[in-house]
């Protein structure tokens, strides 16, 4: 199981997933320019940036929906090629998309195993799927869902998000990327989801959290990566930076406190 409770890992020294010098263009539009990103086990890495900064494109490169034009993709220190969503999930990289990609007409168990159903012979093995789904949700301390045989259409926004996240961690995944998980949620549901995000990292996963909400970012993130117009503006520890500096990095690509030229070369600490 991906979620056997492990003691909080020591501050990771080597990133589990690392991107170096990623470039991606769509026609004449150069969306990503030499982007670097490091993601560590047991940590929440927030990926922030203004609209159009390239966050979604970067996520799609991580998830194998887009292939980068140039640049290197390292997983556990080894260079890999990721050309399809299957490649990414084979590595243990799962993406939770903003629109969640859940089937409303199916129940929670069916959604969690979608496309990777367990079979006994050629018949679906409902019992074992139900059991694993239940264990996974329990491992995430999810108590908001009353029945795992409930249709997803009957769930609230926060519960849907929870199911999508549980689906992503079901597969012995090592890296989970969450695209704006709290964008459509109310206050208490946001708190629940953020708690869940923190718990994922505490369970030893590497979490990438994309968010527009600085409160969310400072609440759960260990590190923050800032994209500005398709470049890495900074990658810093949350403890080394303030709210207003991050906002400055997002809006102008540089901040006084981190030294001039931060936008051009990127700051890595």
């Amino acid at each position: 199981m991906a979620l056997s409770p492990t003691p909080a890992p020591p501050p990771a020294s080597d990133p589990v997933l690392e991107l170096r010098g990623i470039n991606k263009s769509f026609g004449a539009v150069h969306v990503l320019r030499d982007v670097d990103l490091s993601v560590y086990e047991g940590q929440v890495t927030a990926l922030v940036g203004d609209n159009g900064a390239g966050k979604s494109t970067l996520v799609k490169c991580i998830g194998g929906i887009h292939t980068a034009d140039s640049g290197e993709y390292f997983f556990d220190g080894a260079p890999v090629t990721v050309n399809s969503p299957r490649d990414a999930s084979d590595l243990g990289v799962e993406i939770v998309y903003q629109d969640l990609a859940l089937c409303d007409n199916l129940d929670i168990v069916q959604n969690m195993f979608l496309g990777r159903e367990r079979r006994r012979g050629w018949v679906l093995d409902e019992d074992s799927m139900e059991q694993i789904a239940e264990e996974t949700l329990a491992g995430l301390s999810v108590r908001t869902v009353t029945s795992i045989r409930q249709r997803v259409s009957s769930l609230s926004g926060g519960q849907r998000q929870t199911v999508a996240i549980a689906k992503a961690v079901l597969w012995n995944s090592k890296v989970v990327v969450l695209d704006e998980p709290t964008a459509a949620l109310g206050v208490s549901q946001t708190a629940q989801v953020l708690e869940l995000v923190r718990r994922l990292a505490d369970n030893g996963l590497a979490v990438v959290l994309i968010s527009h909400n600085m409160n969310d970012v400072f609440a759960v993130a260990d590190r923050i990566a800032v994209l500005y117009l398709g470049r890495t503006a900074a990658q810093v520890s949350t403890s080394e930076i303030t709210h207003s500096q991050i906002v400055e990095l997002i809006t102008s690509g540089q901040t006084e406190a981190l030294g001039p030229g931060a936008g051009r070369n990127g700051v890595n600490r």
């Binding site: 969503p85 299957r86 990609a101 089937c103 409303d104 979608l114 496309g115």
Partner: peptide, 9 residues
């Protein structure tokens, strides 16, 4: 949800 189905491989 055909998008979800496609993303599920």
């Amino acid at each position: 949800n055909d998008t979800a189905a496609r993303l599920a491989g």
